[in-house]
Computed example of a mutant assay.
Amino acid sequence: MLEGARLPLKGWQQAAVAVGSAVGALLDPRRADLIAALGETTGKPAFERVLERMKRSPEGRAVLLERPRVISSNVGHAWDLPPNTFGAAYAKFMGSRNFSPDDRPPVRFMETEEIAYVATRAREVHDFWHTLFGLPTNLMGESALKVIEFEQMLLPMCALSVVGGSVRFSDKQRKLFYQHYFPWALRAGMRCTDLMCVYYERHFDEDLEDVRRRWGIIPAPPEMVEIKNKTKTFPALRL
């Protein structure tokens, strides 16, 4: 069982939560709780499609069978791996930002354990994707990753997060995002493998560049990554 009480919603309740969360998230994209609720109340069809794809993939089926969780007790060994590995890169990403794998809020609005796990998995692999694509955690980096997530899962919340995030851009940032981040993210999301069907924890000890090539990952261009030290981290969109 996934921890946290799930709240079954009737149709009108689900619509009310979705609308309220969408309005609140657009007004303040820093509200992680609203973004999470929006993703769950509008994402059931998308998560069901992801579930079916995972069932058709050998590695995806292994994920569904074993239901690994990205929590400190399960991924802590990544901090001890050689520096060239995917696991070490993930540990560096998390440690340099004082992020914890345990910070994710529980999924509350999914009707079944199976769909709840898929939604949980999508939430918990977000930082793996940051590591693989080399994206910063500022507003532009998070918005770019939401473009990739939308292409991978077709979650309405991802599209709305991009809209809400871009509203907060300055004119200069908006131009930079749509000239560089957005087209790169479209290309990267289309080229890579089905990322929800990857059992990441089994590849922690493999070379980072090797797994990137195998999964068709196009890392963010260096000029995009250089911006990461100039803007603030935007943790809400880590959902």
Rank of each mutant, 00 (worst) to 15 (best):
R97Q: 01
L186R: 15
T231K: 07
V19C: 01
A88N: 04
I148Y: 02
V23R: 13
C158G: 06
E209F: 07
C192S: 03
L208H: 02
V75E: 11
G141S: 06
A22S: 15
M224S: 03
A62S: 13
R202V: 05
V107D: 03
V23C: 11
E40H: 05
I115V: 03
F150I: 02
E111D: 14
V70L: 14
D207T: 03
A5L: 02
S72L: 06
L186K: 14
M224A: 03
P45C: 13
R202M: 07
R69A: 04
L132M: 09
R213M: 13
L64E: 08
L26V: 13
T120G: 02
G164E: 11
I218H: 01
R97D: 04
E3P: 02
G76D: 13
G43R: 05
P82D: 11
I227V: 14
A62M: 10
G134A: 08
T112F: 00
A144F: 06
D127M: 01
D33S: 15
E111F: 05
M54K: 07
L176E: 12
I227Y: 06
P156C: 12
L132S: 08
S57R: 07
M1I: 09
M196V: 05
S166K: 10
W79C: 15
G4T: 04
R61W: 07
M94T: 13
F150A: 05
L9P: 09
L195V: 01
L27M: 14
G141V: 09
L195D: 01
F86D: 02
V163Q: 09
R174W: 08
R123H: 14
L176V: 08
A15I: 12
F133M: 09
F86V: 06
R213G: 11
L38V: 11
E3Y: 03
E149P: 03
L132P: 02
K175Y: 00
I115R: 00
Q152T: 05
L139H: 04
T112Q: 00
E142W: 06
P183W: 09
D171T: 09
F99P: 00
